[in-house]
């Protein structure tokens, strides 16, 4: 007669299901379908979808590509560490290195332009967390992730690292300018 005893109706699977229960099951089912459809809808009509473009790479390969990009596009350096500020060509490719414990280099973008930003890590996992926009992307060593981004507002943005990456994790802060 209760949930801790065998069902008192031996043929419990033949017992009818109450209307109210059916209704709730139907609601849950339909809602699940709506949520499933919503993700697909957003892939077709939404404007915020995470890119699927990713390649296997190695730290050496990725660092070399990024250094070339930096050498060609640096416009100035900032802070006492002389971090290069690199203007990504409008509509072009930009590279962002995640490593213990910085985001390198500083990128400069223009509002309304679309960029292909290549993300990878040279060592551990890191977390690209763009603030205060609050976009969060996992950055994994060995994988080059090409994310198309279009900034919608001017300003100075921070890249926080939000995947634990060791003792200096909290000091891993990068910067993006949007002009």
């Amino acid at each position: 007669m209760s949930a801790i005893l065998p069902p008192s109706e031996r043929l419990w699977w033949k017992q009818p299901i109450d209307k109210v229960e059916w209704a709730w099951i139907a609601i849950a089912f339909v809602w699940g379908m709506i949520m499933f459809a919503m993700m697909i809808y957003w892939h077709i009509y939404g404007k915020q979808n995470l890119s699927n473009e990713a390649y296997k790479t190695t730290p050496e390969l990725f660092a070399a590509k990024a250094e070339k990009f930096i050498a060609e596009n640096t416009i100035r350096t900032e802070t006492e560490r002389n971090i290069p500020v690199v203007k990504v060509p409008a509509g072009g490719d930009g590279y962002l290195i995640a490593r213990l414990w910085d985001w390198y280099p500083i990128l400069e973008l223009e509002k309304g332009q679309t960029y292909k930003i290549h993300l990878s890590s040279l060592d551990y996992n890191h977390g690209f967390s763009l603030q205060p926009v609050n976009i969060n992307i996992q950055v994994i060593p060995g994988y080059e992730h090409v994310v198309k981004m279009t900034p919608t507002k001017e300003g100075t943005y921070a890249i926080v690292c939000n995947e634990y990456c060791g003792i200096g994790h909290h000091s891993m802060l990068g910067r993006i300018y949007v002009k």
Binding site: T79, R81, I83, D102, G127, S129, Q131, P132, N134, A158, V160, C161, N162, E163, Y164, G168, H169, H170, S171, M172, L173, G174, R175
Partner: peptide
């Protein structure tokens, strides 16, 4: 929802080359 990270020791980012002030 405001962006604060998990597994993160310092919201003030001491030792970082830049500043970022959380809301």
């Amino acid at each position: 929802t405001l962006g604060v990270s998990r597994r993160h020791w310092d919201m003030a980012f001491s030792g970082a080359p830049f500043q970022y002030e959380w809301p």
